[in-house]
């Protein structure tokens, strides 16, 4: 019985990692589509939303069932709690990817993306944070998530500077308002995704050590 349960936890962890990468790829690919101004690619990212939702629901359901049937304790319980949080965070991250893909439609045919070098840079940082959180979960190794707090600070200040930059453009030329508002939104989505990576890191820390921490 116990062996069956522990096998199930291993299968679950593998599937959670896959789902987390699925959400991460939605975010990453939507940013690529934005940079390349590739509408087809953006639409394709949008279409993944359904699969994302299905994976989220089925994993959540599996975790609830495992808790109900096996009443896990200690590390087993902490692993399930952490997995649940990762599933939820990954779903949010994937949906931000979908939102960015949506915005791409409005930003197509404009050639100003290149001016916003900070947005692709911000996206790189955030995707890196998510990657490292997933790695930490996969290998139960806290090394890759040691500096999450500092990395999140950089992401936060990028968002502030993008916001200021956009304000300047909008004041100079009201015709840029639509476009700049989208940029502000996108930087916000990226910043939120970074926060989700931090939340994942907190729970992974709890899973491995058993101690609650807060990443500010």
């Amino acid at each position: 019985m116990a062996d069956k349960f522990h096998d199930e936890i291993e299968f679950l962890r593998r599937d959670v990692v896959n789902m987390a990468r699925f959400g991460r790829n939605m975010l990453n690919d939507s940013m690529n589509a934005l940079q390349l101004q590739d509408l087809t690619m953006a639409l394709e990212v949008k279409s993944r939303k359904l699969t994302l939702q299905e994976q989220h629901d089925s994993l959540e359901d599996r975790i609830f069932t495992m808790i109900a049937l096996y009443q896990p304790v200690a590390r087993d319980l902490r692993t399930l709690v952490c997995s649940l949080l990762i599933v939820q965070a990954s779903e949010r991250i994937g949906r931000y990817g979908k939102d960015i893909a949506n915005a791409t439609r409005h930003l197509a045919d404009t050639d100003t993306t290149g001016n916003f070098i900070s947005i692709p840079h911000m996206s790189e940082l955030v995707v890196g944070m998510i990657d490292d959180a997933i790695l930490a979960y996969e290998h139960e190794d806290l090394n890759t998530i040691k500096n999450m707090s500092k990395r999140d600070d950089v992401v936060d200040s990028l968002r502030t500077s993008i916001f200021r930059e956009c304000l300047t453009y909008m004041m100079e030329d009201p015709r840029t308002i639509t476009r700049c508002t989208h940029y502000v939104m996108i930087s916000r989505f990226l910043e939120r995704s970074g926060d989700h990576a931090c939340k994942m890191a907190e729970k992974i820390h709890y899973m491995v050590i058993g101690e609650r921490i807060e990443i500010k």
């Binding site: 116990a2 522990h6 304790v73 200690a74 087993d76 319980l77 902490r78």
Partner: peptide, 17 residues
């Protein structure tokens, strides 16, 4: 004890290992 046991032996016992 049931959330974060300090001893591996305790952990292994309560998780059915």
């Amino acid at each position: 004890i049931f959330e974060t046991p300090h001893e591996t032996l305790t952990e292994n016992y309560i998780t059915g290992r």
